[in-house]
Amino acid sequence: MSGLEFFVGHYAYWFVVALLVLGLYGMIVKRNFVKKLIGMTIFQVAVIIFFISSAVKKGATIPIADKAVGTAESGLYVNPLQHTLMLTAIVVGVATAGVGYALLVTIFRRFRTLNEPELMERMRREREAAEKQGNDA
């Protein structure tokens, strides 16, 4: 098997790995919380693409009963199991992201920043001020 054939035969996996790495990079390296959420969304889409690409069959049609194709031979239809699972995953992912947006707005209202090191610094300062007040009282 030549190199080009190997790439063409597995291209979905290469691109999925690239997207997974991009999502992880966004979640770990980026300091802005909005960028972290964007990384999470990219990671989630990469996982969904991985599942959907595992359902593809060569020469098969979409999983809707067609009179011209018939229902006797299931190999003529794409496997619909992964589709139903990923449908749920998309909806759950949006709910997760919605909780993330709510947390971002709450953090910004209290600390006026979305930058992680800055937020840590402000939290530390606030805690020290509270401790000092407790010692004085």
């Binding site: 359902a55 809707i64 449908l87």
Partner: peptide, 15 residues
């Protein structure tokens, strides 16, 4: 393009 039309329109609406 991969044959998952239901997932496709859910992603277009939701994502």
């Amino acid at each position: 393009a991969m044959g998952a039309v239901d997932v496709g329109f859910t992603e277009a609406v939701v994502g």
